[in-house]
């Protein structure tokens, strides 16, 4: 399946390039485009966060054989939870992923490397959901659920054999 990586203007081009080039098979890089629509209606003043469901609704429906993923810097939430890394309709072929919670607390060359690895893993994770995959019990599979940022580091930016087999054709 081809991937269209959309990104808000505050996401650094380096992060977009890294996410795009590091896509896990069977995902295939399609195109990376800036996202022009405003997300202001998804902003919740009381929580100073963006409603992930509203942001997801703003992501355009992709054509057949494509998956659309929107990369944002905005911090996302759903009503029940304090935050989410990202959100996708399972099998809906579109998703949203935030970099806000993936960043290590201190900025350094090492932390940048860690961020890029987390980004690759969570891009694979959200695109997996968008393609129809659910969470996986295999601890190091990209589809394993992560409850906090450090737990992402226990996974690999790739799908386990079972998840790969479940990936839809085309």
């Amino acid at each position: 399946m081809k991937v269209r990586l959309l990104h808000t203007r505050d996401v650094s081009p380096g992060h977009v390039r890294s996410a795009f080039s590091g896509l896990a098979p069977p995902l295939v890089p399609g195109e990376a485009l800036p996202f022009r629509a405003s997300l202001s209606s998804a902003y919740d003043r009381s929580r100073a966060q963006y409603d992930a469901f509203s942001v997801l609704e703003a992501v355009p429906e992709p054509e057949a054989g494509w998956l659309n993923l929107l990369l944002v810097e905005a911090d996302l939430f759903v009503p029940a939870l304090t935050y989410v890394f990202g959100l996708s309709h399972v099998g809906g072929r579109r998703g949203v992923l935030s970099l806000a919670r993936l960043k290590p607390p201190e900025e350094s060359a090492v932390s940048e490397e860690l961020l890029l690895r987390r980004l690759a893993i969570e891009v694979a994770h959200e695109l997996g959901h968008a393609a129809g995959l659910v969470h996986c019990a295999v601890g190091d599979c990209a589809m394993h659920r992560s409850l906090w940022p450090e737990s992402i580091d226990l996974k690999n930016p790739a799908y386990c054999l079972s998840c790969r087999a479940l990936f839809p054709e085309g």
Binding site: F77, V84, W148
Partner: peptide, 10 residues
């Protein structure tokens, strides 16, 4: 207390 921290509720 709502909203829940994902780790805490889990």
């Amino acid at each position: 207390v709502k909203p829940f921290d994902p780790e805490a509720i889990s």
